[in-house]
């Protein structure tokens, strides 16, 4: 069953325009100019219940605008949406009992108070019964390991602890869909992994639908099966993450440390990046040269150390646009 359906959804902003210099500054005092900016243009797709979708694209592509429309914060200028059977524009409040959101930079916690106080407040905002609230909090606190700092004022928490609390705050009312806008931004690897584990667990145990935007390729790969790439307000790609990886993640970067100075074989698909007597770095196009074949060609006895990396998300997205622009 579809949890989210968008049809030809559009959003246009009216933006004040001002020229450079004193003269234009004075002019904008008297008569400001406006310009229409199409943040989202006619996008259509649907997300199934229990699905974890990566919604990716460069900054300003329309990701946040789309999320804000789906959550009822913004009203679209055209098209229609259906989230869990509700129209976010008309049924915002009824919908909000069923959705949760973590927006990277926005906080739901009171800065000077312990998180547990904010949680209690939220429980009354969402009208959660006391016993249900307590068992839910206990579960989330265990899952996110919040117990040691539930009573510490938020201002004294580390960023990682704060984000975990933000997640708990958004999950108190057991939402069916979780909207995540850059949830792991600025977090260290350990916290990122913990957050990902939590999301996977929620998805498995509660069948929570997850709608994720992230610049972190790790988030996308580890959490989602399907990715939608959005650019300039339109859907550029909609495909399984696996295929995305195959089509655009087809480069691996191999770094070798050698015991003795030696060259490497360079069959088609392999490109040398850097070479010093005891270290070699090269890229492999896995469509032409499968990585196993390349590794078999190496003199295993001479290798002191090996790392194989994937290019970062930014590069993948860039590759998508390059490809699209070249193609179209």
């Amino acid at each position: 069953m579809a949890a989210i359906v968008l049809e030809n959804l559009s959003k246009t902003y009216r933006v004040k325009v001002r020229g450079e210099g004193l003269k234009n500054a004075i002019k904008s005092l008297v008569r400001p100019d406006y310009r229409e900016v199409e943040a989202v243009r006619n996008i259509s797709f649907s997300v199934n219940e229990g699905e974890m979708l990566a919604f990716i694209g460069p900054n300003g592509a329309g990701k946040s605008t789309t999320i804000k429309m789906l959550t009822g914060i913004l009203h679209p200028t055209g098209g229609s949406m259906n989230v869990l059977g509700y129209n976010p524009v008309k049924d915002r409040r009824r919908l909000s009992y069923n959705i949760g959101a973590v927006f990277g930079q926005k906080s739901q916690l009171s800065f000077h108070l312990p998180p547990v106080d904010s949680f209690r407040l939220l429980s009354s905002v969402y009208e959660i019964e006391k016993s249900a609230y307590e068992s839910r909090l206990k579960r989330l606190a265990d899952l996110l390991e919040l117990n040691e700092f539930l009573d510490t004022p938020v201002r004294k928490l580390s960023l990682g602890q704060r984000v975990r609390c933000e997640f708990a705050a958004s999950l108190l009312h057991a939402p069916k869909i979780l909207f995540l806008d850059e949830p792991t931004i600025g977090l260290d690897v350990v916290v990122k992994h913990r957050i990902r584990d939590l999301i996977i667990k929620l998805n498995k145990e509660e069948n929570t639908t997850v709608f994720l935007t992230s610049h972190d390729a790790g988030d996308v790969e580890n959490l989602c099966r399907r990715a939608i790439v959005i650019d300039h307000g339109t859907v550029a790609l909609d495909m399984p993450v696996k295929k995305l990886k195959y089509d655009y993640l087809n480069k691996k970067v191999v770094s070798l440390k050698l015991n003795e100075s030696a060259g490497i074989p360079e069959p088609p698909g392999v490109e040398l990046i850097k070479k010093t007597p005891y270290a070699v770095k090269f890229s492999v196009d896995t469509r032409i040269a499968p990585i196993s074949k390349i590794l078999a060609m190496l003199d295993a006895g001479n290798i002191a150390d090996i790392t194989i990396e994937e290019p970062p998300m930014e590069d993948i997205i860039e590759a998508i646009y390059m490809g699209k622009r070249e193609g179209g």
Partner: peptide, 10 residues
Amino acid sequence: SIKNSLVYRA
């Protein structure tokens, strides 16, 4: 600052 102040018409 003179320039910036002009921006705050309101």
